[in-house]
Design a binder for these strands. Structure first.
Lengths: 348, 348
DNA sequence: CTGAAAGCGCTTACAG
DNA sequence: CTGAAAGCGCTTACAG
């Protein structure tokens, strides 16, 4: 059963010899090609099991002329959203025999651009980028032909394949939930400044308008980056400027929401009694904190799967028209927005 | 400067031809071998720059008979401690031309054992394992010869290379800090049940004994896993059982500390005024939450570097006597334990 | 110090 | 459906 640990690893030839077939046939079986009789397939499989054969990926990739590696570029792996996304990408890539080279940019624009240009220590077959500052112009100016998929909320205007949740709908759903909780003065922390397309701000405004509630610029606060400190600072600034505090708050990420809650509490405001809060991302802490956080949960597994399919499609067909796909999301209602019941018990 | 994107990738031969030397010489330059004159080296480097050459790792690894891949096995990447550790390991591995295959066990013992046996979809050159349930016996029973480094607080009794912070000292430091804050009734959440060696419980007890404070079993609460929910549950159970609540609390991880704080607050106890709390790990949330969390920060970068060096040493010299190394840690004092000042301002 | 050649373990046309 | 052979791009003894 178990092979001698000192023995050299079995090769394709060894399997072929045992099964009494040619290398080509073993290769056909392993790669799932047709034109192999059922009997032969069974015999080869048995030989593979017997010697515990696993293909040498270096040899395979060398022969195929591919690196067998895709890069996943994220701001920081330490941010749980990206960590769990990375976990799903690794999982889906494994099923395709690909390695995932994880690369952190630290949210730095220059690092994001370098990644876009394929500046990696090794060759890669594809690139999945979740950027914070990259613009459509950066993507258009790209001098590299490596298959590329963009992730994240920004609208890159069909300049490359893109997959994300429907951020307008998600933000609208979050805001509608606050309205249902009885909130009438709802702030948004993390709206993007001015000119840039901001689907989450769009959804937020749509919900307010549909409820005939005016959109107040002083309640829409921009932030730089998505860190908790930023959320806290922006919320403090808002509380300093406006006379009456908001009764609801939609934060652009859970992390920002945690910072916002911190700012609210330091001002003596209670969550959810005084201010109901909704975040975005469903990071694990969302249910570990007090109060547990109501949030929008994107389907990370779907994002990973679709991104990999897009990469495969690009590898197969070369230059194609960029596509934009949406994946599902879900609103998870927890304590931070439970104004009507106020039970203090988590619903998730 | 930039190569034609349609052109095939430059090879070693191309560089050799341009530089007017043999492949061997180029290889020598790339791999930093001696016996290359400075002039030749410069010429080769120029040729490499000119064509933008990057070695084909598949070919290199095939020729060297190595996979060029190490596996990093962690419970869950989504837990920020492991995510940031992974980031450091990737960084250090990159410097050595290695890929890191990240593998999640979900904290499942069977999955941890399978990883130990090298059950990966591909061949690997080394294995770094941060396990939750693995015992020394599991490691001793291993039938695989792949170089292995164990991470984490558990004492595996020199059954394999191991790197971690000095957990006894770290726990002692954390507990001493609580004593300095005036705490006299200090609980520990996450002590391991009975028979198993538990360095953090050991350090906690050492600090109490040195201060002539009795160790009360009812204040030492075991948990299963390291999740926030567990910390919350264990803390609730403790509060239910003991008459007088503790005035200090040391949690085995930050995550557990967050759960504990939640339980304390639900009972109307204030942190740090009623109960000062110290966690362990320095996850990013530790400073995003209210109150910000005092915690022990391990030097993750040092852990990664030493683990990789151990792997290299094992690859080079085959069977060697297992070594155990300690890396530095630091106590980061923040709001959750600031009883003397009580200023409500973060110190980090 | 450098060159020519074999070999790593696969895949893939090309014949049969 | 299967076999023999070339080739992927490196590294590494082996000669010089």
């Amino acid at each position: 059963m178990t092979a001698d640990p000192k023995a050299p690893r079995p090769r394709l030839t060894d399997v072929a010899e045992i099964a009494g077939v040619s290398m080509k046939t073993v290769s056909n079986v392993i790669n799932g090609y047709v034109h192999v009789t059922e009997a032969t397939r069974t015999r080869v499989q048995a030989a593979i099991e017997e010697v515990g054969y696993r293909p040498n990926l270096s040899a395979r990739n060398l022969a195929r002329g591919r690196a067998g590696v895709i890069a996943l570029v994220v701001p920081r792996l330490e941010m749980p959203y990206f960590a769990s996304l990375a976990g799903r990408v690794i999982e889906k890539a494994e099923a395709r025999g690909w390695f995932v080279l994880i690369h952190e940019t630290g949210g730095d624009l220059a690092a994001e651009r370098a990644a876009l240009e394929g500046h990696f220590p090794q060759r890669i077959d594809g690139l999945i980028v979740s950027a914070q500052h990259l613009t459509p112009a950066d993507v258009r100016a790209r001098g590299d032909r490596t298959p590329l998929v963009l992730l994240g909320e920004q609208d890159y205007g069909h300049v490359a394949d893109h997959v994300a949740i429907d951020n307008v709908a998600a933000a609208r759903t979050a805001t509608e939930h606050l309205l249902e909780q009885g909130c009438r003065r709802i702030a948004m922390i993390g709206a993007r400044p001015g000119e840039i397309e901001d689907p989450r701000a769009e959804g937020y405004q749509q919900a307010l308008q549909a409820a005939d509630i005016p959109v107040l610029p002083e309640l829409m606060r921009p932030i730089h980056g998505n860190l908790g400190e930023e959320g806290e600072r922006a919320t403090q600034a808002m509380l300093d400027e406006v006379g009456e505090p908001p009764d609801g708050l939609f934060a652009v990420t859970d992390w920002v929401a945690l910072g916002a809650i911190r700012a609210l509490q330091l001002r003596g405001l209670h969550v959810p009694e005084d201010v109901a809060v909704v975040g975005f991302d469903d990071i694990p802490y969302a249910r570990a904190v007090t109060p547990s956080l109501t949030t929008v949960a994107p389907d990370r597994s779907a994002i990973a799967e679709i991104a990999l399919r897009m990469l495969e499609a690009q590898s197969a067909s070369g230059e194609t028209e960029p596509v934009d796909e949406s994946v599902p999301f879900e609103l998870l209602v927890r304590e931070s927005s439970a104004r009507r019941t106020g039970s203090g018990r988590s619903s998730a």
